[in-house]
């Protein structure tokens, strides 16, 4: 992914430009070229789903394990 732009001025990707929803009633050319961008975006979003949910479960799961261990330590002391 292009990451230089994150904190700079955003220049919408050509896909986004073409994919203007209002353009759906325009010439076929617009629809055809936008579906290429859409497939790319769809691929990326599925990747985000996988990576994202995995990371969230890893983070929250690890926290849960550590908290459970700390609880055990607390109970032992008593």
């Amino acid at each position: 992914m292009d990451n230089q732009n994150i904190n700079n001025q955003f220049t919408p990707s050509p896909a986004g430009d073409i994919g203007v929803i209002g353009g759906a009633d325009g010439p076929t050319a617009i629809i055809t070229s936008s579906s290429v961008g859409m497939a790319e975006n769809l691929g990326a979003s599925v990747e985000i789903l996988g990576q994202g949910m995995a990371s969230i479960f890893v983070v929250l799961g690890l926290i849960a394990v550590v908290v459970a261990l700390m609880k055990k330590l607390d109970n032992k002391k008593k």
Binding site: S13, N41, A44, S45, V46, I48, G52, M53
Partner: peptide, 17 residues
């Protein structure tokens, strides 16, 4: 994440989605 997928199906740019 499911909404990101739906938004990209609706042709939003990936960062907007």
């Amino acid at each position: 994440f499911l909404t990101i997928i739906i938004a990209s199906l609706l042709n939003f740019d990936i960062k907007d989605a």
